[in-house]
Nucleic acid binder design. Structure first.
Length: 412
DNA sequence: TCTGGGGTCCTAGGACCC
DNA sequence: TCTGGGGTCCTAGGACCC
């Protein structure tokens, strides 16, 4: 049985959404028509390019590069800061249009969605154009829609010429439309794999596709087999309706100045623990592995983790474990980024466990009380006294709390 | 004061057990 | 005289995605 899958991808998402918002609020300038970017605050050392306009792309500005280098490529580049709430709203508005065409929608990221449009063979192209045009007319931003027999080919198709286009990529079109492309344009071929492939003379998706299957498997193992299948258009995952279960919850921060003392680092760890704890309790979940990651002033990243005997959702337990991991791994060097992640999640419904963890449960009752106050009166309505006059935010983490958002995965 | 933040999955080595 | 071997768990690190 053949399927028809759509992949809907917002063109220059953050930048388009910012442009539309500003036009709707009286701006005379359409950011999409000038060299412009959405970029992070350089003073906070968050200065990277989050999105770029098509004119900015002509200056060879890349998403993810530093704002500093983008400005060197284009000195009169216009830069605006990100506003995530606006983007969530725009994304939600797009999804509500999509919902009118099919109930089989997988929200893949804030600006991408898959839609299963099988059994509508006769008019899928009309539908795609209608969706695209409705989003443009009703919401003010453009999308590309890729159509294919599976999610991979639909996604590859949406990446063809932009903006405001519908493309198909069916099996019989692979050779003509996908195989001539540079191998790094294939989903899941990043810079490391590109180098390896180029090193053996493989430059196009077609060349990868024609390799011997056993050869690529013995060379690049599972990831090799995956990209070989992709290069041949082989992929059969479902469009997953609703939210995909979360596997881990983590937050991190790049500090405006290097952290140089253990006392400072501990406060940052506590502030991140507050956020991770609040999020895991909000999910009614708990986790058994706590990981701490550090990035030093030379951008070298390393991490330690610990599996707990009993899964936890307690801020205090997360913090104590994180602190222990930090103390065992930190050699005193200046740090620019600190992260905590909680994984191996399980449901928090089994309260019989509390027989074994009285200490943890008392913490959790206090945590939940504080959570309620913070939801009601704001994050800073209840803070730990050690943060007073510390110059460190008492809760650290950049996730929007309204709804745990199905984040993207590197799997389709 | 050039380089964010949130995720998923895979691999490899060592500990430990039978 | 030679030091098997398979399985699972834990940990650190790396690759990729948006």
């Amino acid at each position: 049985m053949s399927r028809i899958i759509f992949h809907i991808d917002v063109n220059s998402a953050y930048l388009s959404w910012e442009a539309v918002y500003r036009l709707q609020h009286g701006s005379q300038i359409d950011l999409r028509e000038i060299p412009s970017i959405v970029g992070g605050d350089q003073e906070k050392r968050h200065g990277i390019v989050l999105a770029k306009s098509i004119p900015a792309k002509k200056y060879n500005i890349l998403t993810g590069e530093s704002v500093h280098s983008a400005l060197q490529k284009c000195p009169n580049l216009v830069m605006v800061p990100p506003n995530y709430e606006r983007y969530v709203n725009a994304s939600n508005a797009m999804i509500s249009i999509l919902n009118q065409y099919s109930p089989h929608i997988q929200r893949y990221s804030i600006d991408e969605a898959f839609m299963d449009y099988s059994n509508m063979e006769n008019h899928f192209l009309d539908a795609a154009y209608e969706i695209k045009d409705r989003i443009k007319n009703e919401l003010g931003f453009t999308v590309n829609i890729g159509i294919g027999p599976n999610k991979l080919l639909a996604k590859m198709a949406s990446d063809f010429k932009k903006p405001d286009k519908v493309h198909t990529l069916f099996s019989y079109e692979i050779e003509e439309k996908m195989w001539p492309l540079p191998v790094e344009e294939l989903f899941m071929v990043g810079s490391r794999t590109k180098s390896k492939l180029n090193g053996r003379g493989i430059y196009t998706i077609g060349q990868l596709a024609k390799l011997d299957r056993d050869y690529i498997y013995s060379w690049l193992k599972k990831p090799g087999l995956l990209i070989w299948n992709y290069a041949n258009g082989i992929e059969n995952s479902e469009v997953k309706k609703g939210s995909v279960p979360v596997k881990s919850v983590g937050n991190s921060t790049t500090t405006a100045f290097d952290v140089e003392t253990a006392a400072e680092a501990h406060k940052v760890l506590l502030a991140i623990s507050e956020m991770v704890g609040m999020r895991i309790r909000d999910l009614n979940s708990c986790g058994s592995v706590v990981s701490v990651g550090l990035k030093n002033d030379h951008f070298f990243h390393y991490s330690h983790q610990k599996k707990l005997d009993i899964p936890t959702s307690s801020t205090n337990t997360i913090y104590k474990t994180a602190k222990m991991l930090f103390d065992e791994m930190w050699n005193g060097e200046p740090l620019r980024n600190i992260s905590i992640s909680l994984s191996e999640l399980s449901s928090n419904d089994f309260f019989q466990l509390s027989l074994l963890q009285k200490y943890d449960k008392r913490d959790e009752i206090l945590d939940r009380t504080i959570d309620k106050l913070r939801f009601k009166y704001g994050y800073n309505s209840v803070i730990r006294s050690c943060f007073l006059h510390s110059g460190i935010s008492p809760i650290i983490g950049g996730v929007m709390m309204e709804e745990e958002y199905p984040m993207m995965s590197s799997r389709l």
